[in-house]
Design a protein around this nucleic acid. Sequence first.
RNA 1: GGUCGCGUAGCUCAGCUGGAUAGAGCAACAGCCUUCUAAGCUGUGGGUCAAAGGUUCGAAUCCUUUCGCGAUCACCA
Length: 594
Amino acid sequence: MQIETLLNAEIKKVVQSLFQADVNDNLIQLQKTRKEFEGDITLVTFPLLKVSKNSPEKTGEIIGEYLKEKVEEVSDFNVIKGFLNLSISDKYWSTFFNSIYTSEKYGFAANASGKTILLEYSSPNTNKPLHLGHIRNNLLGFSVAEILKANGHYVKKVNLVNDRGIHICKSMLAWKKMGNGETPQSSGIKGDHLVGKYYVEFDKMYKAEIKSLMEAGKSKEEAEKNAPAIIEAQEMLRKWEAGDKEVVDLWKTMNGWVYEGFDVTYKKLGVDFDKFYYESETYLLGKKAVEIGLQKNVFYKKEDGSVWCDLTADGLDQKLLLRSDGTSVYMTQDIGTAIQRSEDFPSTNQMIYTVGNEQEYHFKVLFLILSKLGYDWAKECYHLSYGMVELPEGKMKSREGTVVDADDLIDEMVKTAKTTSEELGKLDDCSEEEKEKLYQTIGMGALKYFILKVDPRKGMLFNPAESIDFNGNTGPFIQYTHARIQSLLRKADFFIDEVSLGDYVFDTSEKEIIKLIYDYPETVKQSCNEYSPSIIANYTYELVKAYNHFYQALPIFKEENEEVKKFRLQLSKKVATIIQQSLALLGIQAPGRM
RNA sequence: GGUCGCGUAGCUCAGCUGGAUAGAGCAACAGCCUUCUAAGCUGUGGGUCAAAGGUUCGAAUCCUUUCGCGAUCACCA
């Protein structure tokens, strides 16, 4: 039984018998005792003063006496102002530890929730390589999926690839004009980077044309509209939509290069998907929904033929759904895609969209329109919104070259892992293959932890000039602790079975760890409720810090009491398991040595 | 201008469903490898929690206002 639940019930009894009053749960405020005070759990007595009709100190004393007397688990107490600090007996903690020690899935939901969740993430454009912003999206999406699974949900990961549109035509056009048939094979450039190169080329060409048009006396707006490059790109898009063979073939070829490139990056990031959707296949969806909406009078048509949804009653604006020429917009597609998905996965209970916070308004509108159309599941849709990754000079912009490229960053992290490992020289007896794998594990561990330890909703800053740390609150620090424990366990060549500690009194560092282990299931739940890997990351860091303190303070193999020695090994092993599982929730591997 | 979000140590971040003296890491300084991995441990210095009001026994946390930063409000995606 959870100690808080037990105490809560007992305290109610005390209040009833001593003060003749019934109190509800919100008056019984239990919290963890702060480190600087003696005790494990603290009851805040201020809210109880009204019924106790006593001073805070006196109230604490009375309740404390009673609990110590009547409740076996409460071994002692002290009162400081309005805080009753309760010490929980070592027996309780050691019984607790024994009860979970062998449970492999401790912390994770024991049973399936029966809930199916569709989680969209990544969703790249096929006209440029992935950058740091995409890394955050991918790591966040993957990790949240793992966290949902740990909480018993069934998760389908989907990726909606933005593979069509004017921006794709820009790369295609530039390649056609200046590419001289260059391919990833002929140039040795990774496919997505090659296509990205031509996207930048297009922009240069376009800007130059605008400049000369403006010099010829055109306004900026006119120049932007009438530059030959953009007109050609638009023409190309029309041809693509008409199914022009030449354009479609080029589109297929260049997208193929991009996919090969993305595949490599996804593998390095360790992310995967259950299903891909392509916008080229979904962009016409949604028109049917518009018709239904018109019939239901959820939407209305203007004189020019454009279709709108009036959201002013909900505090939002008018939203366009079909242009006057009958073509659809982003919102129309998203409506269609959502409906399509609900049909593809009829058992879905919830859809989650991992998309940057710049699109908060878009999703608010999307979910609102879907529910106006009568889809019940719309209220279960959730925009997993995350903050932008900014550089010291501000937002990243692909066209201006102020981006941190995903592949470059990954390579750099792995290289740093290699350099550091070589300096430390602990892997000298490993095979080259093992070493390379470890560099990968450590480098990616550093990168992933760096991204995921930050609350996803918040923006974050990345300074490329300061490399990502490998010491302190970092992935490698946590991985290192895991490796260190594994080393211990390898040395313990005996089987650690039952331990009888007798009257052994825990060292504070041992108790600290047990209490953290006790918190683990709650942490896994909380990270799920808040869709926040950072909660797992911060928890793991706390656990690891407590473990390192213990490791430093107390001997393990040199401990003379055999039972205590075995207990410390058990404790170490459990910590290692939790580290490994927590890191897995973040998509990070826990190496056996490093 | 409307809406939403943010502002905590030199830097990067925790803490925010109200609780005790606001925490970590990095950077700086001082210690610890003849005990199990020093990618570690211990310690020192560093704060008007943007500002001002309010609610409360109690506010970094809730409310209001102001300032600053960002996003968004397209017949772009």
